[in-house]
Simulated scan of single mutants.
Amino acid sequence: MIQYLARRLVLSLVTVMGAVVLSFFLVHLTPGSPGQLILGSGASQEQIDALNDKIGWNESLVSQLTHYLAGAVQGDLGESIIDGHAIGPDLSARLQITGTIAALATLVSAVFGVLIGVVCAVRGGVTDRLINAANGMALSAPPFWIGVVLVYLLAVETSLFPATGYVSPADGLSGWLASITLPVIALAIPGIAIVARTARVSTIQSLAQPHIQMLRSMGTPPWRVLFVHTLRSASVPVVSVLGMQFVAVFTGSIIIEGLFGLPGLGQAASTAVTYHDFPAVEGVVIVASLVVVMVNLVLDALVVLLDPRVRLA
């Protein structure tokens, strides 16, 4: 198992490095320069060139990349070329917001998705068909559209939750919960549908396995057959889907954060790309890539623990 995870770790580090290098060149291939965007159309070319020289934009790409990576390895993500603030502490605070929302949305998807999927597999019939139809509708609705509907119904019409804005937990737990409830629900609804379908299929397949049939014939209590033996056998695909769900929610947070006015990584990425703030762009890529590869490593470890045959594949 250790050798398997070590190989995955090396591959993950290569992935992070590739993402950083690719994003670096994409930023520099974008038309315009930081000097043009910061100084505006009224600035002369000399002023623009002077600012670009000051921030190192006109240095060779290799020199810029080498300098940046040397600092990043030491934990220094540099400073924003827009306002000079330190990028590391800013992204750390934003990561807590985005990570918390993604984790809660994934947790909600796991709890309700597994419950719904198991009910469909065990009950079957009309219940299965109705829930599958509802799942199809949930899958076809993008989180942004769900968020708009939730804002209209629960914020505008009933005032149960704030439409936009974020409250820190330090400023009040109730206010924090209220500010993240709608984003979490908007992100969790499609996830619940995906997890439910996966759990349903996996549970049906597990119930049909010979050893499960044998346990039933031996008079093993139905609850033990289902919750101890069947669900463990069916858990590998569900765990894999949950891992992908977290990654999808985490990396795709920019739209939801924009809709609900959340100061997370998505908002930071949008601002950095708009103003050619390449240190900030690189910082967002590094943080997001590290989170994704760490989640994948944890997912790999869980899958190996649940099904040791994976390490031999």
Rank of each mutant, 00 (worst) to 15 (best):
I55E: 03
P263W: 03
V295F: 07
L69F: 07
G165Y: 10
L13C: 06
A163Y: 04
L139T: 13
L231P: 01
V247W: 03
V236D: 05
Y68R: 08
L91D: 11
L207T: 03
I255L: 11
V126F: 15
V284A: 00
F24A: 05
A268K: 05
A43F: 11
V62N: 06
L5E: 00
V73A: 08
A70E: 12
G56Q: 04
L262C: 02
F112G: 03
Q96L: 13
Y275S: 14
Q74P: 04
H276C: 07
I192V: 15
L265T: 07
Y152V: 14
G18N: 02
G283D: 00
I255A: 09
R232F: 06
Q245H: 10
L51Q: 11
R94E: 05
I131T: 04
Q36G: 06
W145L: 15
V239L: 08
L65A: 05
A134I: 12
K54V: 06
A6M: 15
T66A: 13
N296A: 08
S109A: 15
M218K: 15
V298T: 07
H229L: 01
R8H: 12
T274N: 12
V201K: 14
T251S: 15
L215N: 11
S235W: 07
G18H: 01
L29K: 11
G266C: 00
A86Q: 10
T106P: 09
D49A: 14
V111T: 11
F25Y: 15
S63M: 13
Q213S: 09
G113C: 05
T127P: 03
V21G: 06
L37E: 14
A102C: 06
T198D: 07
L306S: 07
G147C: 01
T106Q: 08
I185E: 03
Q45H: 15
T15M: 12
I286Q: 00
I194D: 10
L37R: 13
I82F: 14
S80H: 11
